[in-house]
Every structure is written in structure tokens, then in C-alpha cells.
Computed example of a mutant assay.
Amino acid sequence: MLEIRPTCENCNTPLPFDSEEAMICTFECTFCKDCVNTVLQHVCPNCGGGFEKRPIRPARLLEKYPVSNKIVHKPVDVSKHNDFLNGPNNKQT
């Protein structure tokens, strides 16, 4: 079951359970759409995978299946991320 993390890992913007702005990778690293599009260039800085829109947990299930309150705030080093994106094995096409 997804944790539904409460904030963007990069900018710490709140991303409540019903946010249309939340994006996740296969390991559930959580970022806002703005960071995914403008900072990360659609590549997770933690695993190198892509992103998908995070599903919205129905409000009626929140009591039985609460969302996480664990904040993961690890601002991305943009220079290192760009180096990773442009590395010999990771050329963007």
C-alpha cells in the first residue's frame, strides 16, 4: 500500500492525500509536478526512474488506511542531478 507522503522531497510543498500535483517514482519518492517538470526533468534523483501521477486515496478510506505524516525533505543538488542526466549512460533523447 502506498504511504502517500505529505510533501515534495525537493521543495517541501504540501501534497495532501488528494493532491493533483503529487508525482511518485517506483520507490514512491514523492515530488510535486513543478519540481518533476522543471528541476528533475522527469528523472528521479534517487533511483533514476521516471514519475507517474500519485493516485488519490479516497477520503472514506483514510481512517482505516491513514496516509503518512513522515516528511522526507532532501533538496536536490541541481548541478549533480544535471551531471547525472548528462552522464555517458544517461543521455536524454
Rank of each mutant, 00 (worst) to 15 (best):
T93V: 03
G87K: 07
C25E: 07
R57Q: 01
K80Y: 09
V76Y: 09
H73N: 14
M23Y: 12
N46E: 00
E3N: 08
C25P: 07
P88R: 09
H81S: 04
T93I: 03
E63I: 11
P88D: 08
Y65I: 14
C25Y: 03
C47G: 01
M23W: 07
V36G: 02
F27D: 12
G49F: 02
K64S: 10
H81G: 08
D34S: 14
P58M: 02
V76D: 15
F17A: 07
R54S: 04
R54Q: 06
S68T: 00
L40W: 06
P88W: 06
F51M: 05
K80R: 09
K74N: 14
G49E: 01
R60Q: 12
C32A: 05
E20N: 15
F17H: 15
L2A: 08
V43I: 10
K80M: 13
K53S: 04
E9S: 14
N46D: 00
Q92I: 07
F17N: 04
D77G: 02
S68N: 13
K53L: 11
P14Q: 15
F51N: 05
N46F: 03
N90G: 07
A59L: 13
N69M: 12
C32H: 07
I4V: 14
P75Y: 10
P55E: 01
P16Q: 11
R60S: 08
N12I: 03
H73V: 10
F31H: 04
S19Q: 10
T26A: 15
M23R: 13
V39L: 06
C8D: 13
V72T: 03
M23C: 11
C25S: 09
M1P: 06
N90L: 04
R54H: 04
T7P: 11
V72K: 10
L62R: 14
M1Y: 12
F84E: 01
C44D: 01
I56Q: 09
P14F: 12
S19L: 11
F27Q: 08
G87Y: 05
F51T: 09
A59P: 11
